[in-house]
Design a binder for these strands. Structure first.
Length: 404
RNA sequence: GGGCAAGUGGUAGAGUGGUCAAUUACAUCAGACUGUAAAUCUGACAACUUCGGUUUACGGGGGUUCGAAUCCCUCCUUGCCCA
């Protein structure tokens, strides 16, 4: 075996293990990957939210690796299933999306996925193509492959049943549809999160029924969101691929230190040995977790916004937060009156949601005007305050500009 | 078709006639601390306000009462059981 072969095998090993929860059937998949055959690899995306987040990126990065190994990546856009609603990752019923909403959401998908994948080589498939043609007879036959007991045994269904929340029959059809997608695509491999297990396996069941070789399955870990719960668009704890660099930065910085390594493994392609070293250094107290986070954030922003933006975001953070400096460019807020109440200005500038909140922040010592704490919430701003810089909290800045 | 139960603030979940703008937890926001926006600790957390108060809120509508998230009627939604 030559050098190249060894290299290939180790790359495949990383594909099969980095951030991966389970592979079915691992031995078979490895054999296929080594065979030199161009595999058809499927990843389904439900266009339920217009934003892709870092949790999705785990699969996309994995797809990129496979793409680099020369395989055919197929992005399945769930325009049909998106209207139905998946049960897997929900603890409550998913609303049926309107067709219009699905279309709207799909629009930005290519752009977002393009940050990671080589879109030139990607094949697209809208699953309404095959699914909308099926009739009751065929659906009935497919449904016969599964039993009610199997559905009830699923954790999410179980939970909802126990909690007494509603489960629509419609939702039970979802795995059939996802499974049939694999048939339509003749997929060799399907990627998904661990929550997708049942749906992914349904693909194998149906492929067998239709006389195809069952696909292999690669399940990636679900990463935790910024609040420690599973990252999900319905929790609002996501880091989105379209987030602005500074926003991305902030979200990463505000997550628990315990997630750093997990994120490095799943959301970046930093070499595994480097990550291990970092982990050891942090455990030994040689490395400050903050520095690891800064590096992590840089790596993540780099993927979606490029290296320059990544460096800028890091610089902004160090200056503004660490050194508590006022950023170079502060947003100007125009006031078209001769004077304005302080609380009203803060609301106008978007630094507080209401007069009451502005008052609270001031009373609690959260306001600085030109770097001096201001605690008089009844104060009125006049022309002599023109150009003053306001800082609320750690990163809310605004400069006042009187137009009169 | 019948019977029973439930619907509270961003979320979970207390509260069964006044002291409830509504316990608590989580989330959120501010402060302290830390060369992290982590952790920990403290405080705040409906809107408006001439800081005295005022207004709007407990699925929708109506009613009883001096007074209702709490009682009654009705509608809507959901769950469970029976047929």
């Amino acid at each position: 075996m030559g050098y190249m072969d060894n290299n290939l095998e180790s790359r495949i090993e990383e594909v099969l293990s980095r951030g991966v929860a389970e592979v079915i059937d691992r031995a078979n998949l490895k054999k296929k990957l080594l065979s030199g055959k161009k595999l058809r690899i499927k990843l389904g995306i439900d266009p339920t939210s217009p934003n892709l987040h870092l949790g999705r990126a785990v699969s996309l990065l994995k797809l990129r690796d496979l793409q680099d190994l020369g395989h055919q990546v197929i992005l399945l856009i769930g325009d049909f299933t998106g209207v139905i609603g998946d049960t897997s990752d929900k603890e409550s019923e998913r609303p049926m999306l309107q067709v219009e909403a699905v279309k709207e959401n799909m629009r930005s998908y290519r752009e977002q996925a393009g940050k990671i994948l080589d879109m030139e080589k990607v094949e697209y498939y809208y699953n309404s193509t095959g699914l909308s043609k099926l009739g009751y007879a065929e659906i009935g036959e497919q449904a016969d492959q599964f039993s009610l007991a199997e559905f009830i045994a699923r954790e999410n269904i179980r939970k909802r049943l126990d909690a007494g929340t509603r489960i629509s029959l419609r939702e039970l059809l979802y795995p059939l549809m996802q499974g049939y997608d694999s048939v339509a695509l003749q997929a060799d491999l399907e990627l998904g999160g661990t929550d997708q297990r049942f749906n992914l396996l349904a693909g194998r069941t149906l492929q067998k029924k239709y006389g195809q070789e069952p696909q292999d399955i690669l399940m990636v870990n679900l990463i935790e969101g910024t609040d420690g719960r599973k990252m999900s668009s319905s929790w609002g704890n996501t880091i989105n691929l379209l987030d602005e660099p500074n926003a991305m930065f902030g979200k990463v910085m505000s997550m628990g230190d315990g997630l750093i390594v997990e994120y490095f493994i799943h959301c970046t392609r930093v070499a595994l040995e480097d990550i291990e070293k970092m982990e050891k250094d942090m455990a030994a107290g040689v490395m400050n977790p903050r520095d690891a986070k800064l590096e992590l954030e840089r790596e993540i922003v780099k993927i979606y916004h490029g290296e320059t933006e990544a460096d800028k975001a890091k610089e902004y953070f160090v200056k503004t937060i660490s050194n508590k400096e006022i950023p170079e460019e502060v947003r100007e807020v125009n006031v078209d009156k001769e004077e304005i109440k302080l609380v009203e200005f803060l609301v106008l500038a978007g630094l507080a949601k209401s007069n009451g909140e502005a008052r609270r922040k001031i009373e609690q010592g959260g306001l600085e005007i030109n770097e001096a704490r201001e605690s008089d919430w009844q104060r009125v701003l006049t022309g002599s305050d023109d150009g003053a810089v306001f800082k609320v909290g750690k990163f809310g800045f605004a400069k006042i500009k009187f137009e009169k």
